[in-house]
Amino acid sequence: MGEFDEETKQKVLEKLAQKPWSTRDLAKVLQMKKREVDKICKELIAEGKAAYWSSGSTAYVTTKEKAEEMEAKRRG
């Protein structure tokens, strides 16, 4: 059982489905504390719903599906 309720996690997941986010920007958009967003993202990653996606120098978080979509785009 995670620290956060399903509704909050869902709100984060919906945003993550839009694009890869740095948790800093995501926290600003969602008007939440960055530390909370970090923790929720870690929970979502552990649950297999979210994944890290790297631009090469920076790691972002997004949904698993979006990460795969980004990867497919890269392969062209």
Partner: peptide, 20 residues
């Protein structure tokens, strides 16, 4: 070389540097 992408192992966000 280009870099980035989903290149990590389960639960980790680092430790692998993607190179294509």
């Amino acid at each position: 070389w280009k870099h980035g992408g989903i290149v990590s192992v389960k639960g980790y966000g680092g430790g692998v540097i993607g190179r294509y």
